[in-house]
Amino acid sequence: MTADEFLVWAEGRPGRYELDAGAVVTMSPQRARHARAKSRVQRALERALERGNLSCEAFADGMTVRVDRETVYEPDALVQCGAYIDEDAIEIADPIVVVEILSPSTRSIDSGEKLTGYFRIPSVQHYLIVDAVKRLIIHHRRGDGDLIETRIVAEGMLRLDPPGLDLDLAGLFPARPPA
């Protein structure tokens, strides 16, 4: 299946799917930890964009990103800058920040093929992998040429430049609830 065929097939279909090298992949149901982490990341991105007064928009999962002719991913969150996205759009062509929340079933995919796939998109400057269990972010950043720089951040502010936003990690990993 091509990306174009997949987007037509997937629209309005119940469940969540991605396309990997032409094959449809059904996404597993998410755990509460995963859903909470997605919500926190979304709110943190929106707050950072507001503080930076940037003409960018944060999207929660549900928007698709085309990697190539036969690969389409649905990241847990993303940031797109520039022109306003049409209300009926289902695809973001030029994300600048892409976020995936680790889950037991996707750990190797998020750290492997999605890492290389997202950076094949010229607009992607940052790929954040959020580990909600270890309470940290693995930040992959596009460097000069074909260099991808990686660092692990567990607290403080994470500067994402471009587009020029400061992501406050305090809101991502709140104090653990009492046992």
Score class of each variant (00 low, 15 high):
F173I: 13
P104Q: 12
V130C: 01
I129C: 05
G15S: 04
G145F: 02
V133D: 11
I109V: 09
G82N: 06
I101K: 06
A154I: 02
V130L: 01
L115I: 06
D76N: 13
E74L: 06
V124D: 10
A3I: 11
P162C: 06
S55G: 10
D61K: 11
E74Q: 14
R141F: 02
K134I: 03
S103L: 05
P163L: 12
V98W: 11
G156Y: 08
S108Y: 09
L78F: 03
P163T: 09
E57F: 12
D146L: 13
L78H: 06
G145V: 07
D68N: 15
R66C: 12
K114Q: 02
V41G: 03
R16S: 05
A10L: 02
V65E: 03
V65F: 01
L136H: 15
S123Y: 06
R135C: 03
H126R: 10
P104R: 09
G12P: 03
L49Y: 04
P163H: 02
L160Y: 08
D94P: 06
I121E: 05
V41D: 03
T116N: 08
K134M: 14
V24I: 11
Q125L: 07
R120A: 15
E5M: 13
D144G: 13
R107G: 03
G82A: 08
A60F: 08
A48G: 07
L136Q: 15
I96H: 02
L7E: 02
V153P: 01
Y84I: 04
P162N: 01
G82I: 13
A44R: 07
V41R: 10
T2D: 15
F119A: 02
V65N: 01
V124G: 07
S28E: 02
A83F: 09
G164T: 08
P95T: 07
V24K: 03
T64W: 05
G62L: 08
K114N: 00
L165D: 03
I152Q: 15
P163M: 05
V72F: 09
V124T: 09
L136F: 12
G82Y: 08
E149G: 09
R176A: 10
G82P: 11
F119I: 09
P122Q: 10
F119R: 08
V24N: 02
D110I: 07
V65I: 10
Y127P: 01
V24T: 00
S123A: 13
D20K: 14
R66I: 15
A23M: 12
